[in-house]
Amino acid sequence: MKIQIKNLSKTYKMKNKTIQALNNISYIFEGKNFYAIMGHSGSGKSTLIHCIGLLDQITEGEILLNNVPISTMSENEKAHIRATEIGFIFQSFYLNPKLKAYENVMLPMYLDKSINSTIRKSKSLLLLKELGLETRSEHYPKELSGGEQQRVAIARALVNNPSIILADEPTGNLDSDNEKYVLETLKQLANNGKCVIMVSHSDIVKQYANKILYMNNGKLGE
């Protein structure tokens, strides 16, 4: 999967001023890479992740996913790409509190009608097992630690085998042991061919990512 960003700008129009969250960014993200985006607060990291993840509208420029410009995609096509090609991991996990761990992992699988429910369940249990949560699959999010919740969220992001992993400060709420675990997992995914883009404030990420990018005032640089 290739993510091609061409002259991307994103501005927020306020009453008396405009905020330039992304300023004329051009870059190409490719598979089998672990990108770490660093930068101070307000520099536009989350905005970039949301634009790549097809969640936010862009103001100027273009993003091409495997050479398809996203401006030509309908909302349904975007949703389909989010479901099949993109896996999101958030800082605050964003698990559904009313669903058990394995049910949270199953959520994205409902979108693929060809998978029946037994396969869905066994697949999510397998993923949780791989992430060391074999005994926690029946737990609700509130019964899990932060690190465990984030691993459930990672399983959920991976369950449809996406080629892009977008992680916005996924270790922000975790202690260093859990942070290392998450980073190791992401590195593994990149090694297996996925394009992993991760936003982070912490310097440890430099030991895991193979491309470090810096954002400053809406501009992206190496």
């Binding site: 949703a79 389909h80 989010r82 959920r156």
Partner: peptide, 16 residues
């Protein structure tokens, strides 16, 4: 709202 927003990030359409 939050649940629906997360579902959207996971690939659900507004119709779903």
């Amino acid at each position: 709202e939050k649940e629906l927003a997360i579902n959207t990030a996971l690939g659900y359409t507004a119709k779903m």
